Simulated assay, not measured.
Amino acid sequence: MKNKIFDDPEFQKLLTQIIEEQIPFCRLLGMKVHSLEPDSPALTLTMKPELLGNFAQGMLHGGVIASVLDSVAGVAILLKLAQQQPKEDVFSQLREFGLMSTIDLRIDYLKPGKGQSFTANAEVTRLGKRVANVLMTLRNEQNELVATGAAAFMLHERN
């Protein structure tokens, strides 16, 4: 039986700390972990003036939208790896985060990014040996679908 490292409170605490405090860009944007559910993790973002793209209309910058979707995709892959290919300990599992990189990112901007808070979700659709594919969504607090995304990540082998 595989261990459930993704359910380990220490793993979840450390992953949350990495996302919210240790990745400088995620911290700059103000990303927060909402859920570390392996099949649909969620990150949240609260609107602030620095994140506006169209300040006259009060809309979230498209680059911020892409960044949040890219980030939640990476989290989804890490959690799926922990679920399907658990490592011997929490720290070994977290090191997997540094062994992946985005190789393709497509964003469809469906609606202006208006709102006070946003939630990004992701689902891994394929976890191969070298490439993972993910689908993502971003919704505002009114549950309006603001953007969708699709990403491919390279899974690098450890040397």
Rank of each mutant, 00 (worst) to 15 (best):
L155D: 03
I103V: 12
I107F: 02
L52E: 14
R27F: 05
T137M: 04
G128S: 10
S117E: 03
D108V: 01
A42Q: 12
A120V: 15
N121G: 08
T102G: 03
F91D: 07
I77A: 11
N140L: 07
Y109F: 15
K129W: 06
M59K: 07
L52R: 06
E37G: 08
V124K: 08
I103A: 01
G30A: 02
N143Q: 14
M154E: 11
M47T: 00
A120W: 06
Q84H: 14
L69S: 04
I19C: 10
D70P: 04
G98D: 04
F118T: 11
A147M: 08
Q93A: 08
R95S: 14
T148E: 13
L155H: 07
L94G: 06
E20T: 07
L43C: 07
T102S: 07
I107G: 06
V64E: 09
D89N: 15
L145W: 01
S92E: 14
A147L: 12
G128C: 11
L127Q: 05
G63Q: 07
K48H: 14
F25A: 00
A73Q: 06
F25W: 04
E88N: 10
M136G: 04
M59W: 09
D108H: 12
K48N: 15
L127E: 01
P112W: 02
K32T: 14
N133E: 13
F91E: 00
G113S: 02
S35C: 08
T125F: 04
G74C: 04
F97D: 01
V33G: 12
L135M: 00
P38F: 11
